[in-house]
Design a protein around this nucleic acid. Sequence first.
DNA 1: TTCGATTTCGGAAACGTTTCCCGTCATAAT
DNA 2: ATTATGACGGGAAACGTTTCCGAAATCGAA
Lengths: 341, 341
Amino acid sequence: MVNRKRVTIEDVAKQAGVGIATVSRALNNSGGISAKTKARVLQVVAEMGFVPNTSAQSLKIRQTRQIALAVPDIRNAIIPDIAWAVEQAAKQHDYRVVQINTLGNARLELETLREIKKLHVDGLVIMPLAYPKTLENMINHAGIPVSVINYGKTLSRDLKADIVGLARQEGKLVMEHLLQIGRTRIAYAGAPKDKIEERYRAYEQSLRQVDPSLVYFGEDFSFETGRQAANYFYSLKNMPDAIYAVNDMVAIGIVNRFKELGVRVPEDVAVCGIDNNLWTTVTSPQISSVSIMGAEVGRLAAELLLKRIQSPEPLEYERVEFEPRLIVRESSVKPYSRSDS
Amino acid sequence: MVNRKRVTIEDVAKQAGVGIATVSRALNNSGGISAKTKARVLQVVAEMGFVPNTSAQSLKIRQTRQIALAVPDIRNAIIPDIAWAVEQAAKQHDYRVVQINTLGNARLELETLREIKKLHVDGLVIMPLAYPKTLENMINHAGIPVSVINYGKTLSRDLKADIVGLARQEGKLVMEHLLQIGRTRIAYAGAPKDKIEERYRAYEQSLRQVDPSLVYFGEDFSFETGRQAANYFYSLKNMPDAIYAVNDMVAIGIVNRFKELGVRVPEDVAVCGIDNNLWTTVTSPQISSVSIMGAEVGRLAAELLLKRIQSPEPLEYERVEFEPRLIVRESSVKPYSRSDS
DNA sequence: TTCGATTTCGGAAACGTTTCCCGTCATAAT
DNA sequence: ATTATGACGGGAAACGTTTCCGAAATCGAA
């Protein structure tokens, strides 16, 4: 590769027969420059293919025009939508985004915050999975604006960050739906309670009383866990007539296994998941789910962050909540049965 | 937020009673420093929570320790795996990755390359969708090491970049499989020919003769396209006995619609897709597919790039090819029928 | 002790910008 | 013509590092 020396602002200045200050002015149209000098300089800039050195700029203006995006795992179903949205928003403001996967590991989330400092990024969008007090602390002392994408975590009132999440517990929505279509023996299928605690809490709170035999805690959020849940419920003498699955993968697993077992969905058992990913539309029956608005949440989190970064004076911290949307599909359609017509 | 002034290397030096050069030496263990001064300095560094300013470093050493990853669309099925792999590799070498979505738009891919220059990134991993000559040109003149993730594009022999892709046309693999299980009337279902040309070429080349009625070009790569393809094939007086789908989504759509139509898979028609994404395992029947090794390809592309970046002397450009793997599932299992036992 | 060799360390230049401050020049008002 | 008033442009400092180079300190040997 040709070791072509980078052209600097000084080269441009020399070539255009002006001072470097003038070139800078032309580039940033900061005024104090006549139209024709500016035109000439810009002309030379184009000819020489000059591109200002970001490091030098950053060093001088003390901003990197970069924000970090810390998510549990980009491979996870909902995350790409979020990442996409954040990048789009950043791009519009001429910011770059640098990715950090925290692996959904609490310790790594902390480490991440430390990493952030090294990055000298102007702001951070973080989607926490775990949420120990220490993390809150580090956010408060991050020294840069932080925007939190929050799904169901309970956040301390004085977290120094914008927070965007959902207006209503997505789990609640599922439960209400299931109850509303007349199901009475509703089961819960999900990951261990301590993983996404809130979603299980929504289950408990929506019921007068929880029948422990209708609760299945699997190992993770996978398809296989869903199948195991199905097996478990099938083994019951008294099967549930509806299942609230912690996420779509689990819901899909359940439906999949039920079909093998000859359990009819939704006639015998209704199923509803969370995430509203595409997969729910490719199964048969298609599976009801609630959209957690990943793209919208991601976009807004980024917007808020950028606004804060660019604002001269301190802003109030915002908490914005989107309305989760329930999408009813075949798996939880109300059976035609009785008193309906 | 406390406008705590950033602590600089000079503060540390003063505090430790040494020169800034010494602090720098302690930090980068570049030698020329006694063990005990080093210890003392490091001690002070820790106490003051000093973090070197990346911009200043970059400016001085003329490297940003950042690489860019340009992909068509992070939301696309296979991309997250790639992005993940690239980030992991980068992290191990203490590099950051900044994301750029090109939208799979040819014009944007070019624009991206221009964007790269502004970024002052040390290298680029790019996965092109379109591949006009101009892109090759820009890669050759990017001025930084480039690593391309290539799926089936025909690349000019003297592209100045490392290239990692697949050893065998993934489409060929599908066709061979379908032929090998004894299917004779094999159909192709996919996106318009000009979109992923190579995959269609594999179809043509594997057949003595193409029956045009067995080729269905849809609009895109979606589930819906798959369903439409299924409708089309069903309408034929003489149905195919196997279908090669351009990707898994299409394959899933086909299987989905066939089930509604009462066409049995694989008994009546075998189906095989490409990508090997999880979705193929949640349908019933589960769908055969060929893995295009996203994670491995991504990781290696990154490794090669980083090696090149860090190498003092110029390296030969490498072309590495992974072996795509065919995963046979229910949708293309050989029917039990005749001469088999 | 003295001297040369070898460590160890500090000063200062350089990286490429932005921006402050000041001089110059044109314009208009007197 | 003279001068006040801006507009315009240039020089130079500053941002926070790394690293070259030379000075000081230490050490071993004579």
